[in-house]
Simulated scan of single mutants.
Amino acid sequence: MHQSFALLFLALSAGSLFLAAFLLLTGVVQANHKANKWLGAFFFLLSLLLMELFLEGAGHPQPLLIQITEWPRWAIFPCLYVAVFTFVHPLRRPRLLLIHFLPAVIFIIFLTLGDKVQLPNWTGVIARYFFFAQGLVYGVLNLRILMKHQSHIRQVLADRASDLTWLRNFVYAPLVIAGVWLAFRQLPIVDGLLQLLCLGLSLYFVSAAFRQRDVYPGKLSEVEDWPGDVPNESTSARRLTPNQIAILKDRVTLLTDQHKPYLDPALNLHTLADKVGINTHELSLVLNQGFGMNFYAYINGLRAEEAIRLLKSGKYGRGEMEAVSIRAGFNSRTTFYAAIKKKKGEKPAGFLKKD
């Protein structure tokens, strides 16, 4: 491929990321405001990295300009890590936040000093491959955040549709970017195709950023301490005795039997806790120790029972599965089928009343 096309693809990639960074940093996206500031910083620094490659490819005569675009390189993945963390924990900040940016500060200092400081030969190897290593490390850290989120979200929401599926695009971004960057340095033969790949990835990430929605509905954005699969034994367990758990279990059962709050598709742990008259940690403890399941499993089990009752009523046919799922409180077809299959080991159509 002609070099001019390769440079064009790099310029378009850098430009699209820069524009996305500007829009995110200026608050155009209303949801997840704090996290989007970090995501905007990630896009901006990534656009500088691509601009550096563009200047190098174009043979720009000003090395200082290339250095300026190279300086923040080691801060790219830490910015994305903080963004992913803040999407999931909007009221918290990562531990040792400044430590994540320490390598970038050291990198800038050494680049500024230039030839004034004589460094060992092995530092050149580290500088060459550290960015790639960062991508691997932060890819794993982001994946760990997502896995924890998927576990915790089932304690407060009862539907997979409420999960941050779009966030996976950014969880794997460090691995993809590091791989492409290494290919740029090691595989000049495919020059041109890599730039086209960069443009495609840039547009994909930008599109994912602007398709995002609120992380947690309603009051859940105010909940800072998420209950885990098993609430902390040193706090909630001391407050609730086995007898109290049994009493609260009866109260939850009575509430769900009489008022059927699970028919509300927006039901979450916070809302149900308010209805029961206890806090989210206590409700999570009652569900785990009293019912032997988390919020996700408990609510969807009740919805599955309601759906089966509707299917057996004879009022619905095979073409009305979506109506049944909505009436039962589901807002995801996938969750509807999975919940009934798990509850009874049979597909929903098997419960339709035979003529």
Rank of each mutant, 00 (worst) to 15 (best):
6 A>V: 10
7 L>Y: 10
8 L>G: 12
13 S>Q: 06
14 A>N: 13
15 G>N: 07
15 G>W: 07
17 L>S: 00
18 F>G: 12
21 A>V: 03
25 L>N: 05
27 G>F: 03
28 V>D: 03
28 V>L: 11
30 Q>W: 09
32 N>R: 00
35 A>N: 05
38 W>S: 07
38 W>P: 07
38 W>G: 04
39 L>N: 06
42 F>R: 03
43 F>K: 02
45 L>Y: 10
45 L>S: 06
49 L>P: 00
50 L>D: 00
50 L>I: 00
59 G>L: 06
61 P>Y: 13
62 Q>Y: 13
66 I>G: 01
66 I>W: 03
67 Q>Y: 12
68 I>Q: 00
71 W>I: 15
71 W>G: 05
73 R>I: 13
76 I>A: 03
79 C>D: 07
81 Y>N: 03
81 Y>M: 01
81 Y>I: 01
83 A>P: 01
87 F>G: 01
90 P>V: 02
92 R>N: 09
93 R>Q: 14
93 R>H: 11
95 R>A: 15
96 L>I: 09
97 L>D: 05
97 L>A: 06
99 I>E: 13
99 I>G: 12
100 H>F: 15
101 F>S: 07
101 F>A: 09
102 L>V: 14
104 A>H: 08
105 V>N: 05
111 L>P: 09
111 L>V: 09
114 G>Q: 12
115 D>I: 08
116 K>S: 14
123 T>G: 09
123 T>Q: 10
128 R>I: 11
130 F>E: 12
135 G>H: 08
136 L>C: 11
137 V>E: 06
138 Y>I: 02
139 G>A: 05
140 V>M: 08
143 L>M: 08
